[in-house]
Design a protein around this nucleic acid. Structure first.
Length: 498
RNA sequence: GGGGCGGUAGCUCAGCGGUAGAGCACUCGGCUUUUAACCGAUUGGUCGUGGGUUCGAUCCCCACCCGCCCUACCA
């Protein structure tokens, strides 16, 4: 392919590099792919950084590495360059003595960003830096566009998100966030599979959106001539699997919600959902504590972590409050008696400019007050328990008070991280609650659920007593990597087209 | 959706009514142990887009586009 197409954003540097590429082609160079490396940079540092210069002189160690040239220092007849591969960086030293004048002259033409392969032997420089003395050098890929500035890297947030590869090339911190993300997911997966949970994949395209209160994305299947919804939650499918006898299942996958974007919301986000038969929401809270301590310790090496300058302590037992207990604990002026008084709640919400509906139940008003006054204060892990049935259409009713449910939400660093409950396995109650949701949808609530007759039929075969939970993976990654925005932990966050 | 801030060279950033600046990168020259190498000389711009005000606009005004932050819905 030697088309002469000139990109719209061409510039002088680009043109010079295209001309270099053209000359290379004329010498027969054609993106060689036969080069094989013996090591990555980090392996060499680990094995040889501590060796004395004489050691490396007496027994020559020959290696082959490849990587992107990030720094280059030409000093007449000798050159240093720094190559970067997946593991890190290592310096190479190039002189005519070892590779010949012709090869040295070619090397001088290589640009920052070019990908090269080097064979040579290790030595230590005067400043004791492990370096490869090049004996053979080959250009593997010509880079036509100049890299971002070598010292500051890429700082423009828009460009970091749109051209993540540049962020990854130039910012070590970005690379680290995404390798940590991988380790977090691996840790959760191992934790669950060790406890006999089976990992499954359920549909992303749903004929009926369900399992959460949210507005869905709509797509269309041509052959079936039907609209489908990108899933807002896998919940109802995972519970069908429990009915089918998969008593411990989990899924780590994407959910899609057609709502606003923010530093904490991306339209597609990753959720861990897991279901365990013959357990209840108390069991899941215990399991959650264990799992979060395990992943935090594995990934950060500590149970006391710092998030945006605030200490978060995952070592102490997680706090447990009902909604009203939490409000009263952080705002003693709101007494229990007051919080049970509709008139008082309406007065407080009006004072805070919170809009609510006259049809909202007492518990819904308490939730609104909690979200406004208390949620952001829950820095250390805190379970908020026993949410009103009104806003929990899939959760089992509490045995002592049918208006509340056996449910919890886990808050860390002032935001919701997990949501779990004892599952509603009374098919008739579930049918009634779907019917109520359908009424609310009719009344204009766009996030209310749709009556799912297929799910009711499944429930009618019998769902064992089960507890289930969802954990927002992106938010967990934010917490454990101290990232302020969800866009920092999603490789390609949603942006408007350029 | 509302409010605030921003968009100037490939990148990082100054400038703010009077011919557009620096560092890095690029090009050329010098330099055989450099470290964001260094020294010297160059090159590089529809100042986000479109209108308006003005003798003159990157700068002031208006609209729009894109981004970030806060806020609202939500996880």
């Amino acid at each position: 392919m030697t088309d002469t197409h000139i990109p719209a954003d061409s510039n002088e540097i680009f043109e010079e590099r295209r001309q270099k590429l053209q000359k290379l082609r004329e010498t027969g160079w054609s993106y060689p792919n036969h080069f094989r490396r013996s090591h990555v940079a980090l392996e060499l540092h680990v094995a040889h950084d501590e060796k004395k210069p004489e050691e490396l002189e007496t027994t020559r160690i020959h290696v082959a590495i490849a990587g992107r040239m990030m720094l280059k220092r030409v000093m007449g007849k000798a050159c240093f360059a720094t190559l970067q591969d997946m593991s890190g960086r290592i310096q190479i030293y190039v002189t005519a003595d070892t590779i010949g004048q012709a090869e040295l002259d070619r090397f001088k033409q290589y640009d920052l960003g070019d990908i090269i392969g080097v064979k040579g032997f290790l030595f230590k420089t005067r400043t004791n830096e492990l370096t490869i003395r090049a004996e053979h050098l080959i250009l593997l890929t010509k880079s036509l566009r100049p890299l971002p500035e070598k010292f500051h890297g890429l700082t423009d947030l828009e460009q970091k998100y749109r051209q993540r590869y540049l962020d990854l090339i130039t910012n070590e911190a970005a690379r680290k966030v995404f390798s940590t993300r991988s380790r977090i997911i691996q840790s959760l997966r191992t934790f669950l599979t060790k406890r006999s949970f089976v990992e499954v994949e359920t549909p992303m395209m749903h004929p009926i959106p369900g399992g959460a209160a949210a507005r869905p994305f709509i797509t269309h299947h041509n052959a079936l001539e039907m609209d489908l919804f990108l899933r807002i939650a896998p919940e109802l499918y995972l519970k069908r699997l429990v009915i089918g006898g998969m008593e411990k299942v989990f899924e780590i996958n994407r959910n899609f919600r057609n709502e606003g974007l923010s530093t904490r919301h991306n339209p597609e986000f990753t959720m861990l959902e897991f279901y365990e038969a013959y357990s209840d929401y108390h069991d899941l809270m215990n399991l959650t504590e264990l799992m979060l301590r395990n992943v935090t310790q594995e990934v950060t090496g500590s149970l006391k972590i710092s998030y945006q300058g605030h200490l978060v302590d995952l070592e102490a037992p997680f706090q447990k409050f009902t909604l009203c207990e939490a409000i009263a604990h952080y705002h003693p002026s709101h007494t229990f008696e007051n919080l049970g008084n509709r008139h008082y709640l309406e007065e407080q919400l009006n004072r805070l400019n919170i809009t609510f509906s006259s049809t909202d139940g007492l518990e819904k008003l308490q939730v609104l007050l909690f979200e406004e006054t208390t949620e952001h204060l829950l820095f250390n892990p805190t379970f908020i328990i026993n949410h009103p049935a009104e806003i929990s259409p899939l959760a089992r009713r509490n045995d002592n008070n049918p208006d509340i449910t056996d449910r919890f939400e886990l808050y860390i660093a002032g935001r919701e991280l997990a949501n779990g409950f004892s599952e509603l396995n009374d098919a008739e109650d579930q049918a009634a609650r779907f019917a109520e949701q359908a009424r609310q949808k009719e009344a204009g609530d766009q996030e209310a659920m749709i009556y799912d007759a297929d799910y009711i039929r499944a429930l009618e075969f019998g769902l064992p007593p089960t507890a289930g939970e969802g954990i927002g993976i992106d938010r967990l990654v934010m917490l454990l990597t101290d990232s302020p925005s969800i866009r920092d932990v999603i490789l390609f966050p949603q942006l408007r087209p350029e």
